[in-house]
Design a protein around this nucleic acid. Structure first.
Lengths: 330, 330
DNA sequence: GGCAGACTGGAAACCGCTTTCCGGGGAGGT
DNA sequence: ACCTCCCCGGAAAGCGGTTTCCAGTCTGCC
């Protein structure tokens, strides 16, 4: 491996000079030496050792993003937004996937802390377990005590800058829209009760129905993914409209209905949440609540990098999008 | 930031001892000192500085994965497979997205080299431009000269370990299957001609048709994504069967047909390639060539980490999956 | 012409950790 | 008892950069 010292020797200059030429420094270096160094570096194929640079400078140029599952398009979109933003700042990205294990999330924060990353983004729903949240907060505090910056996309439970999707409000809005179509008997494919995102969406939806004087929906818990939606759909009673707390589950539900010969929206209306881009061509087109996922990811990075002392929490509103998977009741 | 020295002082031991206790060493440390150090580290909230460790050890525990686009489920699946494999090896992952810019890919290799990552995985189709490929090879060679390991998922054009999907063969197999259903007039939504993956699939498909004595297909080039498929579908002539060189394009094509009131598969048959999981619930279900994406990602990591001196290239066969998007011709 | 001040180049300290090398003490063998 | 060998703890030399501090050179100005 060729080092800066090799370059300096080859160019016949000191280490200091070589460093100043090759890695942005405030100090000027004469044109003659400068070209000698550049040429030497080029000939030798020099690549700075970032570990050494990070150590010497005391600051790295990488950020960490922790998501639940990259193959879930929800997280892919969020991560992509954050990564694009990072790229414009000249930052590298370390991505960790927890596969929905909160312990993994804590472990990642510790690891990213060890890496002295400039910032960490925790992307994804918080869980309702105060013990876990407490330990995560502890790990984050330790990281921040060392000068680390952090932000979260999800619920404001961590005491860090947060981009918070308005899950309750979005779901409530959706409920009102669906009720406006004449539906009165609802079911909610509610996902796991301990996932705050799922719980909020479910609660927002149910709350709005109550406010409208409608009967409470049938609530069916289960996994937060496609198969969870598929399974939950089997347990729906006599509802005319089913709300799956995310699009991926809604697609699972649609698959279940299709297999059973239940027509959507003729026999039952189905709605989701998120407006996943990959699913926009689904048939029937999914009624959902659109979240600007890429922007949210990018915004979270901005917040993390921002110099503000105060913790800022930004609500992001969702927009109800009615499509063919729901119908107006006669 | 609390350092190892702080811990050592607090525990009343030397730096060496503290290091041996806290970071796996071959050397033993007495139980008494050991617990003192551990306790001190815990009290102080010590987190090793990985940059320093990497520098001192001369080896890092991070690997780099470079993909074209994380929001494309094809890459998400591949990356996920690789990341899971990395996790079992205790490795951290840096992910870079090129957004399909080959220059970015080269830049990433340089950056990951600077990071002294243990291995880099180049995931995604090569381009047909020899100049670009040459520069990428140069950058890779420089990296490998410094002890770096590399592997590629795509075409064997880089001189590194490669997991190569059998694009030609898979497409040929698909062509034979479709011809077996009685189709004779084909169109290929071929993607960009410079993308080797797209070109191979197109060539394999067309080649098989020729072998069968069928007329050559209509070839329509365009972008490699959903909108590319959508646009290309508009230009299809009188084909009874359309092959989109990937699933995402096929979905675009299906959307185009749906909008125009063309029924699939009654009026036209459509097939894709990849068998993207997220798209399995699409209606109509997509005929495609299944690639074991997760396994391929994991395998690429294995190859990169493997000790073999010889460059190994592994072909991965695709499996034709006939679903409702194609029909047998009367 | 002489001197202050601005610039440029180099020596060396330092970033935080690993690991080699050394020394001291205890256990085991004779 | 004495010697050897093994173990464990510590001092110190790196790992590859950055940056402070110092010295020498030029330039501009009085």
């Amino acid at each position: 491996m060729v080092t800066l010292e090799d370059v300096a020797r080859q160019a016949g200059v000191s280490l200091a000079t070589a460093s100043r030429v090759l890695n942005g420094s405030t100090r000027q270096v004469g044109a003659a030496l400068r070209t000698r160094v550049e040429q030497a570096a080029d000939e030798l194929g020099y690549r700075a050792n970032i570990a050494a640079q990070t150590l010497a400078r005391g600051a790295s140029n990488v950020i960490g993003i922790v998501v639940h599952d990259l193959t879930d398009p929800y997280f892919a979109a969020l991560a992509d937004g954050a990564m694009r933003a990072a790229a414009t700042e000249g930052l590298l990205v370390m991505v960790g996937t927890t596969h929905r294990d909160p312990e993994q999330e804590i472990a990642y924060v510790a690891t990213l802390n060890a890496q002295r990353v400039r910032a960490v983004l925790l992307v994804g729903s918080r869980v309702a377990d105060p013990a876990v949240t407490g330990r995560l907060r502890g790990e984050l505090a330790r990281y921040q005590a060392g000068g680390g910056r952090a932000a979260c996309v999800g619920q404001d439970l961590l005491g860090v800058d947060t981009v918070a999707p308005a899950n309750r409000e979005g779901a409530a809005e959706l409920a009102r829209a669906l009720a406006g179509l004449g539906h009165t008997r609802f079911a909610v494919l509610a996902g796991p009760p301990h996932l705050v995102t799922a719980a909020d969406r479910c609660a927002g939806f149910a709350g709005a129905l109550v406010e409208l004087g409608l009967p409470a929906p049938q609530v069916i818990n289960g996994p937060f993914d496609r198969d969870g939606g598929y399974a939950a759909a089997q347990q729906v009673g006599d509802a005319t409209c089913v709300f799956a707390v995310n699009d991926v589950m809604a697609v699972g539900a649609l698959a279940a209905y299709r297999e059973r010969g239940v027509r959507v929206p003729e026999d039952v209306s189905v709605a989701g949440f998120d407006d996943i881009v990959t699913l926009r061509d689904h048939v029937p087109a999914l009624t959902t609540v659109r979240l600007p996922l890429k922007d949210m990811g990018a915004r979270a990075l901005e917040l993390a990098l921002g110099e503000e002392d105060a913790v800022v929490v930004e609500q992001v509103a969702g927009e109800v999008v009615l499509r063919e998977s729901v119908r107006r009741l006669a």
